[in-house]
Amino acid sequence: MLDHGGRDPVAAPLALGITALILFVISNVFPLLEFGLSGQHDTAYLLAGIRQLYAQPAPLLASVVLFTTVLAPLLHIALLIYIYLPLQFGRRPPAFVAALRLVQRILPWSMLEIFLLGVLVAAVKLAEQATIVAGPAAWSLGVLVIVLAAAATQVHPQRLWDRVG
């Protein structure tokens, strides 16, 4: 290859965003951890855990967890796709500025990587007394964290403006 203009500023974030969306769905649909103790089994899902917390009742805590592990990452992913999908086809999405601003704002509140560490700590804590098996969601969550981090590094508002502006 003789000429290479660097990575496409639009295609890469969009591809990562779509990947993240797929992984996000997997993480929420499939079991996170399977837990066995004295012949009893239980499966933990991300959303079910939050619902459990809500019902305990700890609604405030449940809201915090819901926002940081579900809503914020989802918003992040949705915004990525919202911004980059029209750009891929050479169009500028409505409220482009607001969307870009929101991506930057939501980023610190998407705490999936920390949640993943929490999963690890909880699993190790329980592993002494119970059998813990990581479900598909745990693996996809691990990949999702990496993909989101990569997507974050791929978002360059200045380059976008260079392209759009």
Partner: peptide
């Protein structure tokens, strides 16, 4: 001259994710 790659290689990533999701 190479034929222009119309689709960027980066699209393999969501494709793999999609396949994984489909398999699951």
């Amino acid at each position: 001259l190479e034929r222009e790659r119309r689709v960027s290689l980066v699209w393999l990533i969501p494709l793999v994710a999609l396949l994984a999701a489909a398999w699951l």
